[in-house]
Design a protein around this nucleic acid. Structure first.
Length: 310
DNA sequence: AAGTAATGCAACCGCCCGTAG
DNA sequence: GCTACGGGCGGTTGCATTACT
């Protein structure tokens, strides 16, 4: 016997929320709170919606101080760094980015960050947009013909074998670990500023495996120091003593502070699973050895070779 | 201008977990 | 200890918009 559904699916409305529904839900929660029971809430306010749908709408859209879009480079780095360490636990990642929801971050990762790493250019950032579609069609044709040349200048470039698309499509489960390995080698630093708009000469595409060995956290701290104004020793002390770092909220809670349950999760204030103490021991930030687009390309190439030999 | 493909995001689905009875 | 239930989460889908031919 299966579980009883949380609501009568035949009588609840689905699809986009109307402004009226938004207003009803928002005003009720602002006045009365959720009452601790999302399932009962829609009946109370006369909404023909599933309780889960109400919860999602509130958390992802109606809640105050929600930020949409416009991810900064710093946020990119945080997302990538945390993805290295904990994988696709979006609610935990969202908890480190005030105003961001897990859904937002998940979408951002799936639609942009991942594609950046895999070498796809964003449409709206294409320096030569008129050529893009034609180049893509050419790529498709050449893949069919067994060629890997990329005339548009984007990675993978002519000197590097392409990540085999037909195979990768059947390796969805490998993709997560593959990207994680890539990010680990890159040390979590991810910047659009480092992208280069032309093909990387083959002689520059040598990946220095020795340089990608795990480095001490203090090196990561040097990175933080650069952006925060603290030196690495101060950072070490602060982390050890649970001092909240101004401008480094993403690392807030690495000590006992978060245990006091007063840390606001951007995704869900009641998210008891987003326990930083539980997760932080798993996190091993590594430095960006060579934060260039070419090094990312080389890493991914190496990864594709590794997958191809499995 | 019309048609097509690609993209981004809101919303849904289904599973897992914690907890009350 | 068992069961039912609600909350929470990650994965996936559907559709509107945008870019391009």
């Amino acid at each position: 016997m299966g579980r009883a559904p949380c609501c009568d699916k035949a009588s609840v409305k689905k699809g986009p929320w109307s402004p009226e529904e938004d207003a009803k839900l928002k005003s009720y929660i602002e006045q009365h709170g959720t009452g601790g029971n999302w399932i009962a809430l829609p009946q109370k306010i006369g909404l023909k919606r599933c309780g889960k749908s109400c919860r999602l709408r509130w958390l992802n859209y109606l809640r105050p101080n929600i930020k949409h879009g416009g991810f900064s480079e710093e946020e990119d780095n945080i997302i990538c760094s945390l993805y290295i360490s904990i994988g696709s636990r979006w609610s935990i990642i969202a908890a480190q980015l005030p105003g961001r929801t897990d859904n937002d971050i998940k979408n951002y990762w799936n639609t942009r960050l991942k594609k950046k790493l895999l070498g796809n250019k964003q449409r709206n950032k294409d320096p030569n947009p008129n050529r893009r579609a034609g180049a893509l069609k050419q790529e498709a044709r050449k893949e069919v013909n067994g060629s890997n040349l990329q005339p548009n200048g984007y990675w993978p470039d002519p000197s590097m074998p392409m990540y085999p698309i037909s195979q990768s499509e059947h390796r969805v489960s490998d993709e997560h670990s593959s990207i994680r390995r890539l990010l680990m080698k890159l040390g979590g630093r991810f910047s659009t500023e480092t992208q280069i708009p032309y093909a990387v000469p083959a002689e520059q595409q040598v990946y220095d495996a020795s340089a990608a060995l795990v480095a001490p956290n203090s090196v990561m701290n040097e990175d933080l120091a650069g952006s925060s104004g603290y030196n690495s020793t101060e950072l070490d002390d602060m982390f050890c003593n649970s001092v909240k770092l101004e401008g480094l909220d993403c690392f807030y809670g690495m000590g006992n502070v978060m245990d006091e349950s007063n840390v606001t999760s951007s995704s869900d204030n009641t998210n008891t699973n987003a326990n930083w103490n539980e997760v932080s021991p798993l996190i091993n930030y590594q430095p960006m050895i060579n934060p260039s687009y070419s090094s990312m390309q080389s890493c991914l190439f190496e990864e594709s070779v590794r997958l191809g030999t499995q």
